[in-house]
């Protein structure tokens, strides 16, 4: 499968935090959700992709090109949305359009106005009077109006109410009707991802723990509940993480079919949510 982002052995050291030998490939034509706790390295990774942070070592390719020689070519084809405010507060969307449109070869005013209308945004009001949700939509309009091939978003749903989030997810799905588009975005609201993401990348303490398709997660991961007495040294091997309550246990397994064979009706094998997967990976003994 064609890759849109390829990170190979990336290293970056900060005081108190580091990313070591990070490897990550993002497939073209799909939505990839990027999850992990706060401070796990999501923003750092996204900033390295955007060349806002320079890795100490390693290879980084976007559309198969490196920033060194092709930074401008790459960024012409990227749309970005960040969770902090990067647009001048006193300016209106019309002002921002005037400033940003000439930067992109493929800027399309028709697309711009379509999104403004769709999101019901005021053209002439300064951004500083916008609500959090409107700001996100404004960023989205400015990110999408040059018809980017790759859309990178850092926590676009943070602090947004469910209605706004639904609009965003619908927009993402609309974009994905075009198979040449790819979307990579970080979020901590995992329920948003479970429906629309094709792949989920989970990062913890600067390490990529997994990069799976949503089908793999739904099919191969399961939540198992049962009596504590069922767990002994042998059966323990079949689980990846176990948490015990008084007489019962809850565990994550990557072999739900084998568990069903071993325990039969003695345990409950349930669908596991992304949130629960993260919870288990994040620190159950």
């Amino acid at each position: 499968m064609e890759k849109v982002i390829e990170l190979e052995n990336l290293n970056k050291n900060f005081p108190g935090f580091s990313i070591n030998d990070l490897n990550l490939n993002i497939n073209k034509g799909y939505v990839t959700g990027f999850v992990g706790a706060n401070g796990s390295g999501k923003s750092t990774t996204i900033k390295m992709i955007m060349n806002l942070i320079k890795p100490d070592s390693g290879d980084l390719k976007i559309f198969g090109m490196e920033h060194g020689d092709y930074e401008k070519t790459i960024k012409q084809k990227i749309g970005f949305v960040y969770d902090d405010n990067i647009y001048y507060e006193g300016l209106s969307l019309r002002d921002l359009q005037k400033i940003i449109a000439p930067v992109y070869h493929d800027w399309n005013n028709e697309t711009f106005y379509n999104y403004i209308e769709k999101f019901e945004l005021p053209l002439n009001k300064p951004i500083k009077n916008f609500s959090k949700g409107m700001r996100m939509k404004a960023s989205l309009v400015l990110a999408l109006s040059h018809n980017p091939e790759l859309i990178i978003m850092d926590e676009p749903t943070a602090g947004l109410d469910p209605v706004f989030r639904k609009d965003l997810l619908k927009t993402i799905q609309e974009i994905m009707m075009d198979e040449d588009k790819s979307i990579f975005f970080s979020t901590h609201i995992t329920s948003d991802l479970e429906k629309i993401a094709d792949y989920i990348v989970f990062i913890k303490d600067g390490d990529i723990i997994f990069n799976h398709s949503i089908n793999t997660l739904q099919n191969d991961f399961a939540l198992v509940k049962g009596n504590r007495s069922l767990i002994d040294r042998d059966t323990e091997q079949e689980f990846d993480y176990i948490s015990f309550k008084e007489d019962t246990f809850e565990a994550m397994t990557k072999k739900p079919r084998k568990i069903a064979e071993i325990f039969g009706d003695e345990v409950i094998i349930d669908k596991i949510s992304l949130e629960e997967i993260m919870y288990f990976f994040n620190g159950v003994e």
Binding site: E174, M176, S213, N215
Partner: peptide, 17 residues
């Protein structure tokens, strides 16, 4: 696949599978 994914509100790879 992409049209059906959009209509159903699920990811493309789900329909692809």
């Amino acid at each position: 696949m992409r049209k059906l994914a959009y209509d159903l509100g699920v990811s493309v790879i789900t329909v692809k599978r």
